[in-house]
């Protein structure tokens, strides 16, 4: 009899204990359902990089010109500070009052735009160049050989420079479309390392002395060339820090100010900075927290007053930045 009594007590204990355990852990399972485990050891916060340099900003946004274009792609400014913006196969000109004056559509998607001192518009399509006069009438056009992917165009005097990410060279043409020479092919004898272009970002610009600068994005390097293709100078700075360039291919876009310093625009962690002609960081213009998420890359250009114009494709705006101490 005593044994069966023990048995009974044991049974009741087991039932009580196990039901209590089930309720405790069952409720705990329901509560913690789908919740992230606390303190993830792998957390990698890239948000911090987006704030990098915010305290160094010496520029302020003074104006945002709204665009009525879908997915604006490239931007240029002429000597009279009129803004040219491309979207798909179209190009529009916006004057100082925000009035749209010229709107032209060409045969193919426009990858890049430049405006010469005469006011002629040079459009780089994927494999061709189209030249329009200031009224938007086509005056010339030519094809680029081989497997070209033009990503940038710049006009210096009587030369047209075309950055070609497909062939990894810069083509030099005259204004009528005659090929003069190729620049930047790997040539150890002339100390040219060759362009390393891991993504379709490859920009060229002309400095105040009229010489070509091309960005070797894969090496985070700026290269300066004589018109005949000889290397004039170069500098590079790969670094995750604010004073350098990081990622696979940066800076994605450049422009050159009147004193020869560079306005650089980086993709990945978006930021716009100014570097001296010899490479040192001079100023931070804008940091990632000033742009919407999903913004892909920001093309930049400068106007006659050294204001920096940033084409924001996400917001469809031309955002204009100016040094804080400059008068409005």
């Amino acid at each position: 009899m005593a044994e069966s009594k023990n048995d009974r007590i044991l049974t009741i204990l087991v039932i009580f204990f196990s039901v209590a355990g089930m309720i405790y852990f069952g409720l705990s399972a329901v509560r913690s359902d789908g919740k992230k485990t606390a303190g993830n050891p792998f957390h990698y916060d890239i948000e911090n990089f987006k704030k990098d340099g915010a305290d160094l900003r010496t520029y302020k946004e003074v104006k945002a010109v709204p665009l009525t274009l879908l997915a604006p792609h490239a931007i240029a400014v002429d000597l009279r500070d009129r803004i040219y913006v491309t979207s798909g196969a179209s190009v529009v000109r916006i004057d100082a009052a925000g009035q749209m004056s010229v709107s032209t559509t060409v045969t193919d998607e426009i990858n890049a735009i430049a405006v010469s001192a005469d006011g002629d518009i040079y459009l780089a399509l994927r494999t061709a160049v189209e030249v329009l006069d200031s009224t938007g009438t086509r005056t010339a056009s030519w094809q680029i050989p081989d497997q070209a992917v033009l990503t940038s165009v710049a006009v210096a005097g009587r030369d047209v420079y075309l950055a070609d990410a497909g062939n990894r060279v810069v083509w030099r043409y005259d204004l009528q479309g005659t090929l003069l020479n190729k620049i930047g092919e790997r040539d150890e004898a002339r100390d040219i390392v060759g362009f390393l272009i891991p993504s379709p970002y490859f920009d060229v610009a002309i400095d105040p002395d009229g010489f070509l600068w091309a960005v070797n994005t894969g090496r985070h390097q700026f290269e300066n060339y004589f018109p005949d293709g000889a290397l004039r100078s170069s500098w590079s700075n790969s670094s995750m820090a604010i004073d350098g360039f990081s990622g696979c291919c940066n800076p994605a876009h450049i422009a050159i100010l009147s004193d020869g310093s560079f306005v650089t625009s980086e993709k990945g962690i978006l930021r716009i900075k100014v570097h001296k002609q010899i490479g040192a960081l001079e100023a931070v213009v804008a940091t990632a927290d000033q742009f919407d998420p999903k913004t892909s890359s920001l093309e930049v250009t400068v106007d006659s007053r050294d204001q920096i114009l940033v084409l924001d494709p996400q917001r469809a705006q031309v955002r204009i930045f100016q040094k804080k101490e400059d008068p409005p």
Binding site: V14, S18, V19, G21, F25
Partner: peptide, 12 residues
């Protein structure tokens, strides 16, 4: 939690 819930269920 679910492992222990199962274990207590088996004990029961």
């Amino acid at each position: 939690d679910m492992i222990l819930f199962g274990a207590f269920l088996l004990l029961l």
